[in-house]
């Protein structure tokens, strides 16, 4: 049996300048050049993007949902990272 399966790629599209690339979906392609072209045809055929990234799905390392607590919860007890933590006298502007 010969190999006819193309690997999977994840597609990220920047919808317009000033925004970051957002995950749009995935597709199959034999190599990076074709992944880009296929992504252009598939995910931007109605003019949805100005820039595309493609990444082999196998290259992505994801956090696991089970690690959710140790991974993300420590952030929740650092309220001083958020501007609302600080009290500013009324009338002070541009801060």
């Amino acid at each position: 049996m010969t190999n006819t399966d193309w690997p999977l790629w994840e597609v990220f599209v920047r919808s317009r300048r000033g925004l970051s690339h957002t995950h749009a979906g995935s597709l199959h392609a034999p190599d990076a050049e074709f992944a880009l072209r296929n992504a252009r045809d598939l995910y931007t055929r109605r003019g949805e993007g100005v820039s595309i990234w493609v990444v082999p799905s196998s290259a992505i390392t994801a956090s696991s949902p089970d690690e959710k607590d140790p991974f993300f919860e420590p952030a929740a007890d650092k309220p001083y990272r958020h501007p609302t933590f600080y009290e500013i006298p009324e009338g002070v502007k541009h801060l």
Partner: peptide, 11 residues
């Protein structure tokens, strides 16, 4: 020959 190519040829 492959679905991705359906989209490309139609374009």
């Amino acid at each position: 020959p492959v679905l991705e190519e359906e989209v490309a040829l139609a374009n």
